[in-house]
Design a protein around this nucleic acid. Sequence first.
DNA 1: CAGTGGTCTAGACCACATA
DNA 2: ATGTGGTCTAGACCACTGC
Lengths: 245, 245
Amino acid sequence: MTRDLDITLDRSSPVPLYHQVASAFEKAIRDGLLPPETKLENEIALAKRYNLSRPTMRQAMDQLVQNGLVVRRRGVGTQVVGAPVRRNLRLSSLYNDLQDEGATPQTTVLSLELVEAETEIAEQLNLTRGAEVHHMVRLRTVDGRALALMENWVPRGIADFEQAELESDGLYNLLRRAGIDFRMAHQTVGAGAADARQAELLDTEVGAPLVMMDRTALDSRGIAVECGHHVYRADMYSFDITLVN
Amino acid sequence: MTRDLDITLDRSSPVPLYHQVASAFEKAIRDGLLPPETKLENEIALAKRYNLSRPTMRQAMDQLVQNGLVVRRRGVGTQVVGAPVRRNLRLSSLYNDLQDEGATPQTTVLSLELVEAETEIAEQLNLTRGAEVHHMVRLRTVDGRALALMENWVPRGIADFEQAELESDGLYNLLRRAGIDFRMAHQTVGAGAADARQAELLDTEVGAPLVMMDRTALDSRGIAVECGHHVYRADMYSFDITLVN
DNA sequence: CAGTGGTCTAGACCACATA
DNA sequence: ATGTGGTCTAGACCACTGC
């Protein structure tokens, strides 16, 4: 049934106990120590085993459920899911595949300027029209092959931008270093055909299918701090989503 | 600051208290009673106000956070998010728009048969190759306009399929009625170009951009019960995603 | 410093699934 | 009948934020 995981808890660590436990289980599942469909001990026994209260143990299990690693059934128990994230049917997530193989992504800044927000952007960022925003266009390549064309807007005053930093660390790392605490993002994923400019930059044909993604990111105050419009070559990128409940 | 929401709790209801509270707040936020950036009372006061313990009140707030309606900051408080889900930048979620306007979606079953699973499908559903699966192809239209071509597979023995039921109620409702308790789904969203068959059925041109989605759905036992490959006209459909944390 | 959310405890009762 | 997860209580201490 359940092997006895050898979990060592550090009660003086700043890492919450439920997170320490959840991480240990997560690792065990990913490493195959707890194979698919394995039934876990019940929550009370687990709590006792690791000297935790039941609510704390439950919080750990909640995290596993949220991450799609286990499934709970009332009156029955908790099991490791039978079907881990599988590779795609017809869609190729080539970029991820490349990453796994140690390919080197590179980013080139095509444009970086301070502009007045158009109506659409102002709405996205909850600004008055004409407010100043940083606008940047970047091209991402992997092993020299064009992957994505990324256009982003950030309200003035949130951070300073330098081309070199943007190219070496990425937009999100730069913003995080500027003190932004991301909490939420709304994304829309669709498709479209490449226009002349996109086709040239992405080294493909006019009319070629592209994955299109729009995003608005909010910080810990619930305020929009960034929005972006990204297009990816359809043969090199796709989005993976796991829904729970 | 916080208006006093008039929430009536039914302690004898099978609906959990935290869910009753969360639903009331959710409605208040969506109705504009609690405008964006409104600061809520602290958790202890709220618990007291509604005669709940703090953990129960917290569970309610957790649900609001998870749904992207409020943001919490330690030492500061809880606020309604400043940027509710906005309309798209360049992507048009036309299908949703049509739905809002009361358009009538319709489904036609193009094919429905019991076949032996190909390797790819068998892997998706965690079956041995050659196991029998129901295979169906459906065309969805909205107000007579072609929207999506949907191909799905379900292991034999899970449910019985009838064309009429599939067209009137949809696949998921049919499976739910057969006792399937969906818990989790892995989705991959990408793009591609229409081939001849897709172009004809979706009333578009060969090479036209399509949104492509692959999905595997798991039930409460964590076992794969359905997988599908759907393609949508790019000018009529996109996926909305809200990420938290 | 005061106020907030984040974590944790030690129980309790209930609804549901399975035998 | 038994065992499971689902819910709920009434506290406690801590870490962080802002004044």
